[in-house]
C-alpha cells in the first residue's frame, strides 16, 4: 500500500563532544504502509531510548532542523509531558503522531506538514508536529485541532510555537502563539 509521501526516519543521539549536526543520522526512508511497520517493529520505542535522544520522521528531502528552507518560517504544535506520564503516554502519542503523518490525516493541509519529532529528555519529553509557513492562522489552527483529536488529548495541552522564536530565544521559554 503506497503512502502519499516518502518519509525519512532520523535518529539523534546527544554527544557533547561533537557538533549538533554530526549527532543527527538519517536511518532510512519508506513509502509504503508495510515498510513503515517493518521499520516501526524493528526499532526501539521512544520510552526505551536514553535521555538526549530524538526520533524525527520528515518528508524525504526535508531536514529535521529549523535551518531547512521548508521549516525556517514555520512552526510546531508541541505536546510536552513530565517523566511521570512517559510510560503510559509517550509511546502511544508518538505512534498516533506517525499514523497522522503517513495516513495524511490533515487532508488538504497535509501539504503543509513537514514531519514530527520526539525528544527524550530528563525533565520533560516532547512530541512536536512541524509545519512549514502557513498561509493563514485558520490553517494552523485546523491542523492543531485535527492533531489534538488524533492524540485524544484534553484541552489546553498542545501549544503552537514559531520556529523563529525558538531559534532566537536565550533563556526565556518560547511563547505559545496558540494553545488548544
Amino acid at each position: 500500500h503506497p503512502l502519499n509521501s516518502r518519509w525519512a526516519l532520523w535518529f539523534f543521539k546527544n554527544d557533547r563532544s561533537r557538533a549538533w549536526r554530526d549527532n543527527l543520522q538519517l536511518v532510512t526512508t519508506f513509502d509504503t504502509v508495510e515498510d513503515f511497520w517493518a521499520l516501526y517493529n524493528h526499532i526501539q520505542l521512544p520510552s526505551k531510548l536514553s535521555s538526549g535522544c530524538d526520533y524525527a520522521v520528515f518528508k524525504d528531502g526535508i531536514q529535521p532542523m529549523w535551518e531547512d528552507s521548508r521549516n525556517k518560517k514555520g512552526g510546531r504544535w508541541l505536546v510536552s509531558f513530565s517523566r511521570q506520564g512517559r510510560y503510559s503516554e509517550l509511546d502511544r502519542l508518538w505512534l498516533e503522531t506517525l499514523l497522522c503523518l503517513i495516513g495524511e490525516s490533515f487532508e488538504e493541509q497535509s501539504r503543509a506538514v513537514c514531519g514530527a519529532v520526539v525528544n527524550i529528555r530528563t525533565k520533560r519529553d516532547k512530541i512536536a508536529l512541524w509545519m512549514r509557513e502557513m498561509e493563514s492562522q485558520a490553517a494552523v489552527l485546523h491542523i492543531g485541532r485535527v492533531y489534538k483529536e488524533c492524540l485524544d488529548l484534553p484541552t489546553k495541552t498542545i501549544g503552537y510555537q514559531v520556529h523563529a522564536d525558538a531559534a532566537t530565544r536565550s533563556n526565556s521559554p518560547v511563547k505559545h502563539k496558540f494553545v488548544l
Binding site: H1, P2, L3, N4, V33, E34, W37, Y40, N41, E96, L99, I102, G103, E104, S105, E107, E108, S110, C150
Partner: peptide
Amino acid sequence: GTRIIYDRKFLLECKNSP
C-alpha cells in the same frame, strides 16, 4: 493528483498482517 489517505484503523490492521 489524488492524495492517498489511510485511516488509523486500517493502518493498525496492517501492523500484524503478513
